[in-house]
């Protein structure tokens, strides 16, 4: 017990950051699974963080309510953003959604000035957010999402998303409304990113406009690239590794960023589909059955 509490005192926050990053991994998985390269998730995280933190601080709403309203706000904005940008594809979509993170940042900086309120704290950000995120609440939400993902893949909607990723014209000639399903995946991703933002704000006790910029967007993408998008658990594995690795490499001091990057590059070169490949998972189960 003593060892555990010592471990937790040192690494408890790393574990919770890893869980939050797993949520972000899931959020980008929704879009990548549908074949959409979207970099808007950092922006959605920002919306979830700001809205939930402002609610907790200024309205005194209970944590689950703040969290849910934050995520729903991100989903709503995701829907509004998705309507125009999901007409775009590939790298054009990536650029358009990257611009969105910048819009969130600028809005956060200037919101109070323009509205005359003191809600978001401008360039200084919002601090003094109560620390309400707990490992149990994170695990609970993550667990629900994993069940949702398993069910999604077996469902008609999940098959439609998979078909769109493989060949969207063929999917369309099979009666699948490609645009609406893309919008669905985009909004689901926004909702989960918004949840992650709410958890993050109530863990670090701070939300700032620069937390959700370009590098945050790229980090989230890296979770999915490292873990792979052939299976939903890839994003979880990628997020966990990329959160823990910098901690594990702490002894390398200033070189750890480089080593971190080199590992990522090596995985991309040698395992272009990421670390998690469903074929291997199936292989393991088959071997077990054979015994």
């Amino acid at each position: 017990m003593n060892i555990f509490s010592e471990f937790w005192a040192t690494y408890g926050s790393v574990v919770q950051f890893a869980l939050i990053n797993m949520l972000l991994g899931i959020s980008i998985y929704f879009t990548l699974y549908t074949g959409l390269l979207s970099l808007a998730n950092a922006g959605f995280m920002g919306i979830g963080a700001y809205v939930s933190a402002a609610l907790t601080i200024h309205a005194g709403t209970p944590f689950p309510v703040s969290l849910l309203v934050g995520a729903l706000s991100a989903a709503l904005i995701g829907w509004l953003l998705g309507l125009p940008v999901l007409r775009l594809r590939d790298v054009y979509l990536a650029i358009a959604t990257l611009g969105f993170g910048e819009i969130v940042r600028i809005t956060a900086v200037n919101f109070d000035k323009f509205s005359g309120l003191t809600l978001l704290g401008g360039a200084q950000g919002l601090d003094g957010i109560p620390k309400l995120t707990t490992p149990v609440s994170l695990l609970f939400v993550l667990f629900i999402l994993c069940i949702f993902l398993v069910q999604l893949h077996r469902s008609r909607a999940g098959r439609a998303l998979a078909a769109i990723r493989r060949d969207e014209s063929v999917a369309a000639t099979m009666g699948i409304d490609v645009y609406q399903y893309k919008l669905l995946a985009f909004v689901l991703g926004a909702f989960v990113a918004g949840l992650a933002g709410g958890f993050s704000a109530h863990l670090t006790r701070f939300v700032g406009p620069n937390d959700f910029s370009f590098s945050a967007a790229v980090n989230i993408l890296a979770f999915a690239v490292l873990g792979g998008t052939l299976h939903w658990s890839g994003a979880l594995v990628g997020a966990a590794i990329l959160t823990i690795l910098p901690e594990a490499l702490r002894f390398m001091k200033e070189y750890r960023g480089i080593v971190n990057g080199v590992i990522l590059v090596l995985v991309i070169i040698y395992l272009p589909h990421g670390l998690v490949n469903p074929k291997w998972i199936r292989g393991i189960f088959r071997r077990k059955e054979a015994r």
Binding site: R154, R156, G158, M174, G175
Partner: peptide, 18 residues
Amino acid sequence: IVGMHTQGKAGLLSAALS
């Protein structure tokens, strides 16, 4: 089964809750 898209109507929620 993907080709049967128009033959089904189950939404995301009923699938999620099985």
